[in-house]
């Protein structure tokens, strides 16, 4: 019995063993449900599998030929890129502003903080419903403001603007939280020193604040990009890709082709065009981490 206890103690004390035992479940899980399915998606993109006949049949470049001939695909690719770009720029700027406001000292700060979190914590589909109701339904404030029934979600430039705006609205709080973290990790003394050194507002901003928060701002931009280009909730609920596919994005298109249309091959091939964006994101992460260390 004592020998047994000693054995167990020695086992639980060995660092190498513990590290593996602690990490292994996560590694196995993520490999099985992220890496393997990713490989499967690549395989599906070169297949003629459908939901009626889901078993794998090699199809070569058939799916790609099909989507390249489809103008909706090109439209979606462009929209996805444009939406991501606009969202990054707007979210980073607004997120920085909001972060500074939330860190300032004022009355009702707790209330404001909780309200600011609303857009991000609310399930995306629900807030998209709310916006659709607000922008596009009879009797809503925007409807009354426009004095006639033609909703901004049913017209061409305004529908795309609405999608981008809701995406920015939704992600700004998240970026703000990340930038807040960057701002609070700058030692307080550095702010004091800049004040004492006689630097005015703009010099403090350009010479101290922005350079010091650049890494964390990059992270905020990256998270914004990752969430925006992968999201299908906003487009699906707000505009459904319309009017006339003018707000269609790749994730929703992949869903339409692969799940509703039943053509797993083209769906996978469509989704695969998000991969370069993902690689770009990974590249940024590695750069930021290398600079940080």
């Amino acid at each position: 019995m004592p020998a047994d206890a000693g054995q167990r103690a020695r086992f639980a004390d060995r660092e190498g063993f513990l590290a593996w035992a602690f990490l292994l479940p996560t590694i196995v899980y993520l490999t099985a449900l992220v890496l393997a399915p990713f490989g499967l998606t690549v395989a599906f993109a070169f297949s003629r599998s459908t939901s009626e006949a889901p078993s794998y049949r090699f199809g070569g470049l058939r799916a790609f030929r099909e989507i390249f001939g489809d103008h909706v695909f090109w439209r979606s690719l462009l929209d996805t890129l444009a939406l991501t770009g606009v969202a990054i720029a707007a979210v980073v700027i607004l997120g920085t502003v909001v972060a500074n406001v939330l860190l300032a000292d004022f009355r009702f700060r707790r209330t404001v903080r909780a309200l600011v979190l609303l857009p991000w914590t609310t399930p995306v589909a629900l807030s998209a419903i709310s916006w659709r109701w607000l922008l596009g339904s009879p009797g809503s404030p925007v409807d009354r403001l426009l004095l006639h029934g033609d909703s901004p979600l049913a017209r061409t430039p305004s529908a795309a603007v609405a999608v981008a705006a809701v995406q920015v609205w939704r992600l700004t709080p998240l970026a703000a939280v990340i930038v807040m973290a960057g701002l609070t990790s700058i030692p307080r003394g550095v702010w004091d020193a800049a004040l004492l050194d006689g630097a005015g507002f703009w010099r403090r901003l350009l010479g101290v604040t922005i350079p010091l928060t650049l890494p964390v701002t990059a992270v905020a931009a990256l998270v914004t990009a990752a969430v925006t280009f992968a999201d299908m909730g906003v487009v699906r609920v707000l505009t459904g890709g319309g009017p006339r596919d003018s707000t269609q994005v790749l994730p929703v298109l992949a869903y339409l082709r692969g799940v509703e249309g039943g053509d797993i091959g083209t769906g996978a091939a469509t989704a695969l065009f998000l991969f370069p964006l993902f690689v770009a994101g990974v590249f940024v992460v590695l750069r930021v981490m290398r600079r940080g260390s």
């Binding site: 030692p187 003394g189 004091d192 020193a193 800049a194 004492l196 010479g207 010091l212």
Partner: peptide, 12 residues
């Protein structure tokens, strides 16, 4: 001119 306890040099 003030020298702070942490020296507060600009790290960048």
């Amino acid at each position: 001119a003030m020298v702070l306890q942490s020296y507060a040099l600009y790290p960048h």
